[in-house]
Structures are given as structure tokens and as C-alpha cells.
Design a protein around this nucleic acid. Structure first.
Lengths: 353, 353
DNA sequence: GTGAAAGCGCTAACAT
DNA sequence: ATGTTAGCGCTTTCAC
């Protein structure tokens, strides 16, 4: 009686069935069932057949935890991005999810919110055992602090990782980066060709590898054109709410004919502020943004922008990681994949004359 | 000597240390070490002290898989969203990540891409054992097919879940939804008050619960105003590329004075198409969108829009789930939380007269 | 205060 | 063709 009661409750609660349960059911050993389920040739066709159908009707599903414990692999990768509301990172994440799904990996995603503390905490939680590997882009604060200890700890644990976009020389691993120097160079050159010589450079990510490289490209372009670099035109934006005041000041005290915003939202806000000031874009001021998202596309005038191919970066990074996870046999050199940017000309910049 | 050698190799490869290793090191039993690490009062203060410091220097980290296997809980929740490039869902995900991080849960996120097949496959991969519970918003295709078998299977496994935004009556669980009927009603009423009577209704999510409810709200508002409902004005958009042709046709064959786009991107595209046609917004045509994202905010003219508080929805859903996971003791009734929308008036609609 | 033993669910080398 | 055993890393009851 007790048994029956237990069984029916069991049905309702759908207690997950195990190999042990099936073994008991057939009066065979657990390993026999295991082998049968894994289609081992050791087991007779008849028994296998019976066990399989029973497994199906009982909805047997192998326990993932037990498998992971045994195999020491979880088929899960961890992803840490600074900000998921940023279209570029959303695209990257999309790319990552895509290849992960294709290869039957789960992805645990975490947001650092550009905060060093959150990033470290996240990284701690994400240690080896939870995930087989990590995909990550450094937070701005982390790059400013230059404190990579959390990451290094993981690396020291032997956790494979690939860094993308915001990377660091001090971590040796596979990397996927944008050719940011060239991107900065390209944007500035583009403006110079359109006779813009006084270019305001607004960077919300000044301390990041990405921000620094783009700035260098900018400076190089100026240099090659023989235009002196004016540090006052570089706006290192720590707090987005400062933007308005800064731009107003610049517009009143400097002769400005172009602006570059290093992320999509900043560029669009630049556009808005300039127009509010009554200055026509691109006639008076040309504007270039980064990240080719819907925002750049649909704003008026449509923004000339540097596309970074976020989805492709995500896919590449994920593939690189999975590759390493599965063919750990030849631990070949670390590679750094450089993804070229593309400058998409729209209506926020003047035509060349 | 042997020990030293082993130790140094251990350092290099950083083989993760286990309770067993520590037990051997101190010549005590595994269970003693376990108790010490868990601060059991059974263990003498002295030993505990020694073990703790050793654990720290050796960087002991408990094996997550073993713990999960033992506890039958992974502290991981699964999230399935239709589309992460959509700002609304990105916000929801952000909210979810936030509370998950606060409560020390991992989140495995998956994208269904509005596809029934991908959603089912994902759900299968995400079965009990992998995650402790699920947060999910149904894909459009799934809602059209009305095939919830994958979800029901999970439910039958006893996996706690909470559905958000795109939900179904046929699944009984906690839910967090937007008051979509009211949202549709509100949008239409708003337009009617501004003397718009011929309202084009463009829905890329016609088959979803959300799309249907909003349409009902729309119809009710029309009805109350004594305006006959014209089914030709409802555009059930299956393929986004059709939008242009459809709108052109409508603009030429119907007298239209307002349009509503049921997601952010659609509304913005509507705005663009109308303006390309040379029709002033809002003077000739008023436009209302959904989802209050940067796109709606920065487009020209800025879009009047129905805000759905994505982040809040994500937070609520996550909290509901975690609540259930942690106090499974009183299995109280399922709740459905209804989040009110907010109509944000901007410049794409005329002022009331 | 410490340890032995069983068990979580599964696999695999080694019997029989 | 099937079973035994040991073990993945940890917790926990029960002895000592």
C-alpha cells in the first residue's frame, strides 16, 4: 500500500528516472543499462531494444550534473560583457549564442555593467567547473585600473578563454579584436578629406584598449595631414550627463566642424545637441559614429558610421573557444584575429569636394 | 621529496585541489575537512584554522558539479527570449541578470529567434538538472502554432517556470505580463482624442498573445468612439521587407491619419516611410510606437511611445522564480503580475485641440 | 573531536 | 553478453 501511494505521488511529481531505476525494473545491473543506453555492442540487441523503449516511455533523461562531474566538462561557456543594452555587445552576444547553439553548448552570460567590482565578482562565480571556458570583453573601469587579477586567477586555473573587443596585452590567450587603430584613422581621414579640420573626439571609453587605439589612429591621421593635435578637442566622457555642457562649451569657444562619437548612443546624442544648437548637420558640422545599429540608421540625418561587425566578432570568438575546448590535443599558439571595420557613409557628413 | 615535486607540478598546471587532497595533506579524513570547511562546530578550532588557511593558500574551490549533484540544485536559471536585438527583450534580460547576480544565480540565456524549432530544441537542452527553473517569453511562431508541448514537457518534469510578456493560458505557472489590452486601448484613445480616426495598425507579432490583446484594446477604443473597425487597416506583418509596399499601397488607397507600430523598429520604419512619401509627421500623420528605447527617443520627430518597463518586467519575473525556488515549502497559488504601461508623449503625434 | 561509510547518477576498466 | 568495482568531489549520518 505504501508503495503504491509513493508511486502515484511519484507520477505526479514526475520524479526523474535514473539508470538505477531502470536496472531494478529489468533486474539487471546499472552498468548494463548504461551500456545499453550508450548503444554498446556488448549488449544484446534484444535487451537494448527493451531498455530503449522503456527509457522513452519513462522519459529517461541522463542527469547532467552526474555527467559533468564524471566527464569534467559541462558543455557550458561563460560570457562576460560590459553592457548588454549597447547594440554592439548585443550583436556580439547574438553571434556567440548562435554558434553555441549550433555546437550544443550552453552559455552563461553575465553583465559587468562597466564596473570593475561586478566584473570581478562575476568572474569569481564563474570559475572552472562551472564553465568550460570564457568569452570576455573587459569593462572600462577594469581597463582603467589595469587590475586583471580576477582574470589572471581564472587563467591560472587553466580555464581556456578568449578575449574580444576590449582586450589586454597582459593576458595571453586567443583574442578577437577590431582594427581600432585603423578605424580611428579611417574616420578622421574621411573627415579630413571633407575639409573638416577641427574634429571633436568624444570617447566614453577613453581608458579602454579600444578607445586608446582609436584615438591613436585619429592622431596619426591628423599628423599625416599636418594638422596639429589639440587635446582640448578630445572629450573623455566619464559621465554621460556631462555631455551637453561640454559640447556647448566647445561649440562656443572653439571653431568646430566635425565630431566623432565612439559609440552609437554618444554619436546620436552629439547629433541632437548640435542640431539643438541650431547648427546644421552636415553643413556646419559633420558627425561620425561607431556601431552600425538601427539607431544610426534611422536617426535624421542618418549617421555616417564605422561598423564593427559585432555578430561576426561574437561568432569568431565563440568558434575559437570551442575549437580550443574540443581539440585540446595540439595546444597551438594563441591567435589574435583582427576584424576590419567598414565605414558606412550616410548623411551626417558632407560630400567630398 | 616526492611531495615537493608533485607540489611544484601542481603549481604549474594548477590542478584543482580537492577535499581529498587536503585530507591527505593533514592526514585526516575527507569528512573532517569537509566539516572544517563548512565551519562545523564538531571540529576543533585549531584544526579548522589550519585547514582554512591551507585552503586559501592552495586556492581551494569546491567543485560545483559535485555540489550540484549532491544538492540537486545548480543555482542556475534558464532564460529563453525570442530576440535579443530587440531593445525590449534586452531590457528584460538586463533586469533578469541584475536580480540573478544579486542572489548569486547564474543565468543560461538562449535565443529562440522567434522560431518554433529553435525554441523547442533549446527547451529540450535546458531540461531539469541543467537549470533550477526557467524564465521564458514565447516565440511568435510558437504562439501561432499553439504548440506548447516542449514547454509542457518541462513543466511535467516539475521544472518551476515563470512566463513573461508572451504567455499562454494553457500553461499554469507564475506570469508577468504587460497590460497589453490597456496599452492598445490607450494608444488608440490617445489618437482618437487628437482627431485621428483612420488608424493603421501594424503588428509584426499578430499571432502572439501580446499582439492579440493590443489589437483588442484598439478595437474596443474604436468601438467606444463609434468608429467602425476596418480590418484593411490592420497590417499583419510576417516579413519586415513587405512593410514598404504595404504602406505605400495604404497611403494611396486609404485616407490615413495615424499609424501604430507594435514594436520599436516597426514604428521607426513607419515614420521613415511616411516621411519619404512627403507626408509630415505629425501634421499629416501621427505615429505611435511601442518600447521606449533610444531609437524612439532620438529619431526625428521623437516618437510618442508606449513604454513597457522591460527592465522591471525582467526583475519581477526573476524574483518570482527565485522566490519559488527558495521557499518551495508553501506551494502557494500561481500569480500573474500585470505591469501597467505608460504612454510617453513626444513629437510624432499632434497636440489635442 | 574525528572517521567510516553510504550515496548523489553516471562511466569504464576489468572481471566472469 | 552481463556484472563488479572503483571513482568523479562532496555531504551527512552514525559510530567511535
Amino acid at each position: 500500500m505504501v508503495n503504491i501511494a509513493v508511486e502515484s505521488i511519484g507520477m505526479a511529481k514526475n520524479k526523474n528516472i535514473t539508470l538505477k531505476d531502470m536496472a531494478r525494473h529489468f533486474g539487471v545491473s546499472i552498468s548494463t543499462v548504461s551500456k545499453a543506453m550508450n548503444n554498446s555492442p556488448e549488449i544484446s540487441a534484444g535487451l537494448k531494444e527493451k531498455i530503449h523503449t522503456y527509457a522513452v516511455t519513462m522519459q529517461y533523461r541522463p542527469n547532467k550534473m552526474a555527467l559533468s562531474l564524471r566527464r569534467k566538462r559541462s558543455r557550458t561557456i561563460g560570457v562576460v560583457v560590459p553592457n548588454i543594452l549597447n547594440h554592439f555587445f548585443a550583436q556580439v552576444l547574438y553571434g556567440i549564442q548562435k554558434v553555441a547553439a549550433e555546437r550544443n553548448y550552453h552559455v552563461i552570460s553575465c553583465i559587468s555593467d562597466e564596473s570593475f567590482e561586478k566584473e570581478s565578482k562575476t568572474l569569481q562565480l564563474l570559475d572552472a567547473g562551472t564553465v568550460d571556458g570564457i568569452l570576455m570583453s573587459l569593462s572600462e573601469e577594469t581597463q582603467r585600473k589595469k587590475d586583471l587579477s580576477a582574470l589572471q586567477k581564472l587563467q591560472h586555473q587553466g580555464l581556456p578563454m578568449v578575449l574580444f573587443d576590449r582586450v589586454s596585452d597582459r593576458i595571453s590567450c586567443d583574442k578577437v579584436v577590431v582594427d581600432d587603430f585603423e578605424a580611428g584613422y579611417k574616420a578622421t581621414t574621411f573627415l579630413l578629406q571633407r575639409a573638416c579640420t577641427s574634429i571633436v573626439w568624444v570617447t566614453p571609453i577613453g581608458a579602454s584598449s579600444v578607445g586608446r587605439l582609436r584615438l591613436k589612429g585619429h592622431q596619426r591621421a591628423l599628423e599625416e595631414a599636418g594638422i596639429p593635435f589639440d587635446a582640448n578637442l578630445v572629450v573623455d566622457l566619464h559621465d554621460p550627463t556631462d555631455l551637453e555642457a561640454i559640447i556647448h562649451w566647445l561649440l562656443e569657444h572653439k571653431k568646430v566642424d566635425a565630431m566623432v562619437g565612439l559609440d552609437e548612443l554618444t554619436a546620436v546624442r552629439l547629433l541632437q545637441l548640435v542640431r539643438e544648437k541650431g547648427l546644421a548637420v552636415p553643413q556646419k558640422i559633420s558627425i561620425i559614429g561607431f556601431t552600425n545599429g538601427p539607431l544610426s540608421q534611422y536617426v535624421t540625418p542618418a549617421l555616417t558610421t564605422v561598423s564593427q561587425h559585432g555578430k561576426y566578432i561574437g561568432e569568431s570568438a565563440a568558434k575559437l573557444l570551442v575549437e580550443r575546448l574540443e581539440h585540446s590535443s595540439p595546444p597551438k599558439e594563441f591567435t589574435t584575429k583582427v576584424v576590419k571595420t567598414q565605414l558606412i557613409e550616410r548623411d551626417s557628413t558632407t560630400k567630398p569636394h
